[in-house]
């Protein structure tokens, strides 16, 4: 793992718009964080509220990096993201990053990127990076309905959308499409980030067929830097000692957020 330096930086908001129903993309300048060369999977911890009414920062995966600009894609689902959605161009934004590890090896595999809802950022960015590097891959994005999608369904270009209501792309969850693709391609390797039911389904599927898979885990976080020990996930382990530390529970902010599917259990 490459250990990058954490930077605390005040960025400037350049754009903040709703790109699909309830889903926003915000772009801001953050030169020093960009200098650390973040990679897909890594995240920022953002202070949404200068007052102390909301003391904790909000972890947000990075959705793109362009020169000195970063962007995030987020779904408004709570007080913090509601405040973020009201940020105007020119606002100062209090950032900490880049944090966590990033997606790993794709060589010798056909990467299948699977995302949805709040977990789109790392998938969208990884898609872009693989495109730039000329790595052939597939991307499957799920949503409830067409108005939550901002990509176009284009299987010829290896982009597959699914909707719960069938209003665009394949009808149903991402899983039938993922299974079909896995049958068709050589050496599939799955990379996934999304809502918990989706992650659980992917997890179950790859464990059954023994496909390599990296999951980007979402967790409620306090500090995102290892101080508070708040954001843990259970490790898959069958040899637990009576007394141990970080063998049963892994710290998502510093050990993750990317895990091999085999490493963790969803309870």
């Amino acid at each position: 793992m490459i250990v990058k330096k954490m930077i605390a930086e005040k960025g400037t908001v350049l754009n903040n718009e709703e790109i699909a129903h309830g889903i926003y993309q915000m772009t801001f300048s953050a030169e020093r964080i960009c200098n650390e060369e973040p990679f897909p999977g890594q995240f920022l911890n953002i202070c949404v509220d200068d007052s102390w009414e909301h003391p904790l920062r909000r972890p947000m995966s990075i959705a793109d990096v362009n020169d000195n600009q970063l962007s995030i894609i987020y779904k408004v689902f709570g007080e913090g993201t509601k405040i973020l959605s009201e940020y105007k161009n020119g606002y100062s934004i209090d950032l900490l990053g880049p944090l966590g590890n990033s997606f790993g090896e794709t060589e010798g595999t056909t990467p299948i990127l699977i995302g949805g809802g709040v977990g789109l950022s790392p998938i969208i960015w990884f898609h872009k990076v693989l495109q730039t590097n000329g790595v052939e891959h597939k991307i499957v994005v799920g949503a409830q309905s067409v108005n939550e999608h901002f990509l176009s369904h284009d299987p010829e270009e290896n982009i597959y959308l699914t909707t719960d209501d069938g209003s665009v792309g394949e009808h149903g969850t991402v899983m039938p499409t993922v299974k079909k693709i896995c049958d068709e391609v050589e050496n599939p390797k799955l990379f996934s980030c999304g809502p918990e039911p989706m992650m659980k389904a992917v997890h179950l599927f790859v464990n059954k067929f023994d496909f390599p898979c990296e999951l980007s885990v979402e967790s409620y976080m306090g500090c995102a830097t290892g101080l508070c020990q708040g954001c843990v996930i259970e490790r898959a382990s069958n040899s637990l000692k009576e007394h141990s530390y970080h063998e049963r529970y892994s710290l998502v902010c510093t050990d993750g957020p990317i895990y091999q599917a085999k490493e963790i259990v969803f309870s």
Partner: peptide, 18 residues
């Protein structure tokens, strides 16, 4: 002894606190 600590979720934000 070393301690793993409690299962998640371990933290939640509250008004001006956690």
């Amino acid at each position: 002894h070393p301690r793993e600590g409690n299962p998640p979720p371990r933290i939640v934000e509250t008004p001006s606190g956690m």
